[in-house]
Simulated assay, not measured.
Amino acid sequence: MSRQGAVDRLVLVALSEAVGRAREFAAEALRSWGVVDALDDVVLVASELVTNAVRATGQKAGHRVAVQLRVAGRSLYIEVWDNVPGVPEVKHLEADAEGGRGLQLVEALTTRWGICQPRSGGKVVWAELPLPGVPEPPPGGVPPLGPEFGAELLADVALMERALEALRGL
């Protein structure tokens, strides 16, 4: 499969077991796309975002979370949806704290990350990671608006809308 435009998603019951399944899913998708250079970072970011989504739901019966991986331009996007409104925050903890550093890891490993709160409810927390081996745009020039770069320029809005549309059927 060509990795350009590749998309894969998984819907999970919001239980602690979902985190391990999300890691397996991310690794399988990246291997099938031939994106193994980014595998460790993507698996860790997906794990942290799914952990936060599962915790946000309170692991209540019937609640679901979803994870979507998507290639757009020179980036890979990890998008995690849950049905709980709110904005996750990066915690600034003491050095001896035993947890709570998930978003610090996400911040350190990604180009950028953010939150989309769709009108239909819940939230999508997304993260962008660079794809190794995809050429940079020409130096000093504006990248051509071909399929590989057009997707990147529109990613902020389009990726959230597509993720939301795909997940509305939950």
Score class of each variant (00 low, 15 high):
His63Ser: 15
Val50Asn: 01
Ala53Val: 03
Val43Tyr: 02
Lys60His: 14
Gly62His: 06
Glu48Arg: 05
Thr57Gly: 05
Ala61Glu: 15
Asn52Trp: 05
Val43Pro: 01
Gly58Gln: 06
Leu39Ile: 11
Asp40His: 10
Leu39Met: 14
His63Ile: 11
Arg64Asn: 15
Thr51Arg: 06
Ala38Thr: 07
Glu28His: 12
Val43Gly: 03
His63Phe: 14
Gly62Thr: 07
Trp33Gly: 06
His63Glu: 14
Leu49Thr: 00
Gln59Asp: 11
Val67Cys: 08
Asp37Glu: 10
Val45Cys: 02
Ala27Leu: 05
Ser32Val: 07
Asp41Lys: 12
Ala27Thr: 15
Thr57Cys: 03
Trp33Ala: 15
Ala66Ile: 13
Ala53Asp: 01
Ser47Met: 06
Val65Ser: 03
Leu39Trp: 05
Leu39Asp: 13
Ala61Thr: 08
Ser32Lys: 14
Trp33Pro: 08
Ala38Leu: 10
Glu48Ser: 04
Asp40Pro: 10
Asn52Arg: 01
Ser32Asn: 12
Val54Tyr: 03
Ala38Asp: 09
Trp33Val: 09
Ala66Leu: 15
Val36Arg: 09
Leu39His: 10
His63Trp: 09
Trp33Asn: 13
Val35His: 05
Ala46Thr: 05
Ala46Asp: 00
Ala27Val: 12
Ala61Gln: 10
Ser47Asp: 04
Gly62Met: 08
Leu49Pro: 02
Thr57Phe: 12
Asn52Leu: 11
Asp41Pro: 07
Val67Leu: 13
Val43Glu: 04
Ser47Gly: 08
Leu39Lys: 10
Arg64Phe: 10
Ala56Gly: 00
Ala61His: 15
Val43Asn: 01
Gly58Lys: 07
Gly62Asn: 05
Leu49Met: 09
Asn52Ile: 09
Gly34Trp: 05
Val42Arg: 00
Ala56Lys: 04
Arg64Tyr: 12
Leu39Gly: 09
Gly62Phe: 09
Arg64Cys: 13
Ala56Val: 03
Trp33Gln: 13
Leu30Pro: 04
Gly62Pro: 11
Val65Gln: 04
Glu28Val: 09
Val35Ala: 08
Trp33Ile: 06
Val54Cys: 01
Gly34Ile: 01
Ala66Pro: 14
Gly62Ile: 10
Thr51Asn: 14
Lys60Gly: 14
Asn52Tyr: 05
Leu30Trp: 02
Ala61Ser: 13
Gln59Asn: 13
Val42Ala: 10
